[in-house]
């Protein structure tokens, strides 16, 4: 059986369908990403899988344990890092870690090998109160606390939101190392660039899963011509392209526009169009699709 098995799970709050008949499976030792914007239902899904929320319908199993019937067993084998920093801000780094170790009936020494890589980075601040740590340090401490009881499955709800770029990169490196230790990791993120760091991803939007695959497959199956375009008059370019019948989608991507066309037009057709509209310093090149392109296309 898969490490996490989700079968037609749904949850609504009043009129809002937060999660709508979602099914997926995460294999043992896999790094699986839930990619979706805010409000997509990622946190609700996490709460149902971590036994904090009872689904309206559907079922889910974590390491073979049913999330409703065997919730006590699940709580022993999972590590959960909520999106909001949820450690005691008035306890020190060491006290927080000690507290969570004791709650799970273990000690820091016993599982030090798991957290060593991460803990050495925050060790210099072990006497500092958690509330006084920087964002990146807080994430590392939270990860340590979620790992201290040697969980089989790790649930990380938007662990990199609000963390600087360097700390984000470090954090993903750490996840890679944890994966090597055989821990199943389910991580959610609103950042599309982080999707490629997962083994498989599920694109989620409005409570529905749009697509599940490896990031490579997802991007290579885009299936339509995609160009990066720019010219001196960026805004005019955007508006003019959006008015064209051949342009399926035009989205700003940093300093370029990503233009998806139908198969009927060639790169030369586009170039001709741009020149006909008197654009200066035109750049036009075919580019491979990113996860973000796929996501926007699926929405």
């Amino acid at each position: 059986m898969a490490s996490i098995q989700v079968d037609q799970i749904s949850k609504s709050f009043g009129n809002v369908q937060a999660v709508n008949a979602v099914s997926f499976a995460v294999e043992k030792g896999e790094l699986f990403g839930l990619i979706g914007p805010d409000g997509a239902g990622k946190t609700t899904l996490f709460k149902m899988l971590t036994s904090l929320l009872i689904p309206d319908s559907g079922e889910a199993w974590v390491e073979g344990y049913h999330t409703v019937k065997d919730f006590k067993k699940i709580r022993r084998i999972i590590g959960y890092m909520p999106g909001k920093f949820s450690l005691y801000q008035d306890l020190t780094v060491a006290e927080n870690l000690d507290f969570f170790a004791t709650i799970f009936g273990t000690t820091i020494q016993e599982n030090y090998h798991l957290i060593e890589d991460i803990y050495v980075q925050i060790e210099p601040f072990r006497k500092r109160r958690a509330g006084k740590l920087s964002g990146g340090m807080k994430q590392k401490l939270a990860l340590c606390c979620a790992l201290i009881h040697e969980p089989k499955v790790l649930f990380l709800d938007e662990p990199t939101t609000g963390v600087d770029a360097v700390s984000r990169a470090e954090f993903w490196e750490m996840l890679g190392r944890l994966k090597e230790k055989g821990i199943t990791i389910l991580v959610s993120t609103p950042y599309m660039d982080e999707a490629t760091l997962c083994e498989r991803i599920a694109l989620i939007q409005g409570g529905n899963i749009l697509q599940i695959d490896t990031p490579d497959h997802i991007t290579s199956n885009y299936g339509k011509p995609l160009y990066a375009v720019r010219s001196d008059e960026f805004y005019r370019l955007l508006n003019e392209l959006r008015d064209q019948a051949f342009a399926l989608r035009v989205e700003p991507f940093g300093e370029y526009l990503h233009l998806t066309t139908n198969d009927a037009v060639s790169e030369q057709d586009v170039r001709d169009f741009l020149q006909a509209n008197a654009h200066q310093n035109i750049e036009l090149k075919p580019v491979p699709a990113s996860v973000e392109d796929v996501f926007l296309d699926l929405m």
Binding site: R76, F85, S86, F100
Partner: peptide, 13 residues
Amino acid sequence: EVGTIEQINVTPI
């Protein structure tokens, strides 16, 4: 309010 209860609730406490 602080959110710590969330972390506590997933423990076997």
